[in-house]
Amino acid sequence: MSIEQREARQPWILLTPALTAVLLLLIVPLMFIVVYSFWLKSAAGADTPGFFLDNWQETLTDPFYRDILLNTLKIAAITTIVCGLLGYPAAYFIARSKGNKAVLLVLLMLPFWISYIIRTMSWINILGVSGALNAAMLWLGVIDEPIQMLYNETTVILGLTHFLLPFMVLNIFVSLDGIDTNLEDAASSLGATRWQGFLQVTLPLSLPGLAAGGLLCFVLAAGTYITPVILGGPRDAMFANLVYEAIIRQLDWPLGSALSLLLLAVLGVLVLIYNRYLGMAQLAKGLG
């Protein structure tokens, strides 16, 4: 074997463990789900193997699934916008702080040490009828009776924002931290106010981080299942809840497979659009 041939093979040899893991843990299970989506659920007992389009027809034509999907995308979009609005100032503060940046970053990561479910359930103790907020308002005389604040779409968005905000902050921080502060000084020396300097220099340069954080928040929010279960009311379901119900409650694995693939396809298209215009490198930076 020539040196050139050996050098050409080396990257593939190094990549083999990762590719094997992706193949066995992602591609193969995904193929199972694809195959399952063409099967049929039997009234009782084992599913009927075969190539049936019934599940796909139902998934793609039933307005029920379309409406829940659109509502899921709406909730994910609102959550992403809220995370962006709250996350940018926090990330800017961390990026521009001197000396205590590491401490602030550790504080930002602290919530990850607690289970996501516990963090979500903590809102019940804050916003519940007997929760901290109602108790405080009653004590202060602001209200005479506890206010019902839980179990609606707003609390679902609140719970998602709580969960996803650190992802947004981290991505924006990575972007802001990489911007040379001399550029802002240069803008000032050319007569720009601090606000103009931010709007015309810092913000445009940090947009890739904002977009990467937005993509992460959106994809994670759109695929969430537990937040609506804990903080939502009877009607507050997202698409992942339908997948859960089809597979777990109705034991309809074929339909659940088709639904999960539809969600995967929709989110996959969004990732492709992101990649087309911004590239995946920024996302990798944020995750790193």
Binding site: K41, F64, I68, R235, A237, A246, R249, Q250
Partner: peptide
Amino acid sequence: WNGNEAEWSKEFGRVQRGY
């Protein structure tokens, strides 16, 4: 109840979402 499971469990999934 098992005879109606497939239909009713699915229908309930819709009804609880506002349908």
